[in-house]
Design a protein around this nucleic acid. Structure first.
Lengths: 198, 198
DNA sequence: TGTACATCAGTGAACGCGCGTTCACTGATGTAC
DNA sequence: TGTACATCAGTGAACGCGCGTTCACTGATGTAC
């Protein structure tokens, strides 16, 4: 380890991402991040004005990865019809949310005010834009108003699913959250397909 | 203020609910709650083993109020058909989520493990059960499997909507989250109606 | 009814901890001459 | 090419804060006789 690290800013961000995903954003301390990067606790201040700036960058990377995954999901079935591509996108969204659950929470947490970080806002908007595009294809000629509603509806459903799917509730009744959730988990695709119809 | 308060446990809970709704659950300290109740910072320990126990009680009250509101919403249109009653319930859910947003967050936060607080789990299950019942009426004779899926779907959508509707994002494009959200906010009912059809 | 006493429900001081941030510093680097 | 020096990117110590929780205590209450 050299005295001048050379790549510390980048390493701090990746350390922060790692700790976020392991411990959750409310257990991330600047000190633990610095430690993870094998650097003194004050070193981050050479690269980030405050802790919040570093968290904002972690959040931004989350949205960028989400955008990338959504795009990859639709383009891997590029020849398929819009509906199939929409389904792939839905799956990709849920997969990201469940896989990177704690990062996902940071991305949607009010602790970072997106209006204070324009780059973060851009990244977040970018992810949303992927959904807008596929819905435009799915419902050609749709009015702006209806399109807006559909976007919110599907985004909300996916956002809600991520929120519910790893809740640790195990009620006892037959028709309950727990068992219903495993049904959904076991078969994302058919669930999403059905949701298009109902 | 008497030395023996007489009703401190109850007052601590209501103080905690108040502070939760004002500051959010991650800014609630036992000290601030005690202060709000005009009592020394150690007094709560006569009534709650740990801070978490008090938070669990706040969460439980949240679920109980939600249940009450959902029930009231359907019974106020008791003569109407199942669809109308379902719509009323949806509205009530969204209203609760938006009105008591920070309490709603606590209720769904992983900081309190519901499995450690059976009464809390009961209350949470109770709220979910209201949705199950109305969907059973809405789709009579539905299989347990499909019912489970529908429950998750609508719960997820409502949960997602609460999450999205007060996000502070104001993108610049025409078809964007911000404007679409105000459309939804302005007209919950028609939005929910539409979601039944799509 | 009066008194002794156990129990209950408060109090204030203190402990120990982790945190974000500041400060004066120091070693490494790069550049002008 | 060698040297003086400004700048950069680290360091360790320290500050001040808020927190959950424990402790020995004390005043109020209720009950047995």
């Amino acid at each position: 380890m050299k005295y001048h690290h050379g790549n510390l800013k980048e390493e701090l961000i990746t350390s922060a991402c790692k700790i976020c995903e392991i411990s959750g954003h409310d257990h991330m301390s600047l000190r633990s991040i610095a430690k993870e990067a094998s650097v003194s606790q004050t070193a981050p201040y050479r690269h980030f004005k405050t802790k919040e700036c570093l968290l904002a960058e972690v959040s931004r990377r989350g949205f960028d990865e989400l955008t990338k995954r959504l795009r990859a999901a639709t383009s891997k079935v590029n020849n398929a019809n819009a509906k199939d591509r929409f389904l792939e996108m839905g799956l990709a969204y849920l997969e990201f949310g469940l896989e990177k659950r704690k990062t996902y929470d940071l991305m949607h947490s009010p602790v970072i005010d997106k209006l204070e970080f324009p780059e973060l806002l851009d990244s977040a908007t970018g992810a949303f834009e992927e959904l807008v595009q596929i819905l435009k294809e799915l419902f050609p000629g749709i009015s702006e108003d209806s399109l807006g509603k559909k976007c919110i509806k599907f985004w909300a459903m996916m956002h809600g699913l991520v929120g519910l799917l790893d809740m640790k509730i195990e009620p006892e009744t037959d028709t309950n959250a727990g068992s219903a959730m495993s049904v959904v988990k076991d078969d994302f695709r058919s669930f999403l397909e059905e949701s298009l119809e109902i």
